[in-house]
Amino acid sequence: MKTVITSTGNTLDSNFDLRFGRAAYFCVYDEETEKIEFIENIHSNDQGGAGSKASEKMIELGVTKIISGDFGPKAMELLDQFKIRLILMSDESKKVSDILNLMKK
C-alpha cells in the first residue's frame, strides 16, 4: 500500500503542494515498510500534460492513494481507470510530516 503526498520540497518539513501535476515533489510513503521516499516531478514545468504525466508515474509506481489539493480532469480520468484513491485536502499550510502523522495515528 503506497501513498503519495504532493510536496513543495524534498524534506518532511516541506509544505504540502495543492497541485497534483505541477507539484514539485512526490512523497511516496509505504505503509507496510514505513519507508519514505521523495521523487522529483520532472514534468512540473511542462507546457501541458503535466497531470497525465504525473498520473502515469503514479500508476507505474503502483500507488494506491494520492493526497493532493486537487486533480485536473485528465489526471482524474486516468487515475479513476486504475482505481487509485484520490484524497483532496485544502489546507496548504500543512506540512508533509503533519499529514504523515495523521496517517500513522
Binding site: K65, K83, R85, I87, L88, M89, D91, L102
Partner: peptide
C-alpha cells in the same frame, strides 16, 4: 463518489467497493 471526513476535512473517493468506510488519512 466522494466523501468528506468530519475530523480532518479530507475529501476522498472510493474507487473499489470493498474498501472500509474509514477516512484514508486519519482513519
Amino acid at each position: 463518489n466522494f466523501f468528506r471526513c468530519n475530523d480532518c476535512g479530507a475529501i476522498f473517493n472510493m474507487p473499489s467497493e470493498n474498501e472500509n468506510f474509514n477516512c484514508p488519512v486519519c482513519k
